[in-house]
């Protein structure tokens, strides 16, 4: 039987994989609109900073 792998997106702040049941949010970088930024529920609740890997924009 072939082994199937699922690649989950990772949170931009804490790098944890985001499973579909989490209340995570994704949006394109507000500054450069090139990269999709993912934020997990915990990072949103704690207002942790995220940094865009393409342009270096620091949010929120």
């Amino acid at each position: 039987m072939a082994v199937k792998t699922i690649v989950f997106p990772r949170c931009t702040s804490c790098n944890r994989p985001i499973t579909p049941d989490m209340k995570a949010v994704h949006f394109t970088c507000p500054n450069c609109a090139k990269v999709t930024i993912w934020r997990c529920r915990i990072c949103r609740e704690l207002a942790r900073l995220y940094t865009c890997p393409a342009c270096g924009f620091e949010g929120p």
């Binding site: 949010v25 949103r44 704690l46 207002a47 929120p60």
Partner: peptide, 9 residues
């Protein structure tokens, strides 16, 4: 303002 659940301030 406490900024939890905010994505752009």
């Amino acid at each position: 303002n406490v900024c939890d659940d905010i994505d752009l301030i």
